[in-house]
Simulated scan of single mutants.
Amino acid sequence: MKKITAILVSALLVMGMLVTVSGCGKNAADNQDQEKVLRVVTEAGFKPFEFKENNEFVGFDMDLIRAIAEAEGYKAEITHMGFESLIPALQSNKADCAIAGMSIDEERKKSVDFSTPYFNAGLIIAVQKDTEGIKSPDDLKGKRIAGQVGTIGADACNDIKKQDPNTTVKIFDSVGEAFMELEKGGIDAVINDYAVTYEYISTTGQGKTKIVGDVFSADDQYGIAVKKGNKQMLNVINDGLEKVKASGKYDEIYQKWIKQ
């Protein structure tokens, strides 16, 4: 009786192992069929690069990162957060990459690695439509000026204040808030990226604001950030960007969003 029982137990164990192996094989196949996800973070208040429309992330950067993801066999999963939270999200592995009109600079390069540059930017000054006497950063000394937190526009504001302590600097969480303050007369000027400022004064700020002077910090370039040392992801982004440019898709995206 014990012998028969032992044989039955052994048979059941073998059947169980076969079911387990079969199940594992099915899961592996399912995983292979699943689309790889590229976790992207952005600050969606930087039109025309990233903003929300009809509850969808749209703009130059959004089209670009989706095209890069597609070229590399990924699906882009985009999340909005404050600009200052983007790099910490990479460092804590909550995201694979960040794209948000982020300028490549030496300070940021200490914390993240950047892709090859994908956009030549530059700064410009915006003022109220009737403002006279402001044409350059030197004219902003002693004035009330503003920029967006974490941007080179904010850095430029702070540099002017260093040159003239009588300058008042206001830093806003989004560039839209800075422009609203300008329209209300709470500040004299906004320093911000040229393409974003041009978009604003051509749409929301039309008839209320204007661009003055020439573009400065013209060597400023945008890059896609990844966690420091994540060479695999950096290679994915750079390879995808190269494919998007070679296919002509990049030029198509540029023509769609950048109007200067």
Rank of each mutant, 00 (worst) to 15 (best):
I134T: 09
K110Y: 07
D155N: 14
K109R: 13
P165Q: 13
K129L: 07
N120S: 13
A154V: 01
I160G: 07
G142L: 02
A100M: 03
V112T: 10
D105R: 13
I160N: 05
K135I: 06
L140R: 07
E181S: 15
V127G: 01
S174H: 12
S103F: 03
F172L: 03
P117V: 00
F114R: 02
K135E: 15
S115H: 09
T131I: 11
K110Q: 14
S103V: 10
I104Q: 05
R144C: 04
K161R: 15
I134K: 01
T167A: 08
T168Y: 11
Q148P: 00
N158I: 12
A146E: 09
L182S: 08
Y118W: 06
E181Y: 14
L140A: 08
P165I: 11
I171H: 06
R144A: 10
I145S: 07
I145A: 04
A121G: 04
L140H: 12
V127P: 02
F172H: 13
E183F: 00
A178T: 04
G153Q: 11
V169M: 04
P165N: 13
M102F: 06
F172M: 08
E107V: 09
G150D: 08
A178H: 05
D173H: 10
V112S: 03
G142V: 02
L182A: 07
A126H: 00
P137K: 09
D155E: 14
K109F: 00
I125F: 06
D173L: 05
K162A: 14
S115C: 02
V149Q: 13
G147N: 08
G142Q: 09
T131K: 14
T131Q: 12
Y118L: 03
E107G: 02
N166C: 01
K141N: 06
I134G: 05
Q163W: 00
C157K: 08
K109H: 00
V149N: 10
K135L: 09
K162N: 15
P137V: 01
S111A: 12
V169K: 02
G122Q: 06
P137N: 09
A100S: 15
N158Q: 15
A156Q: 11
V149P: 00
G101T: 09
K161H: 12
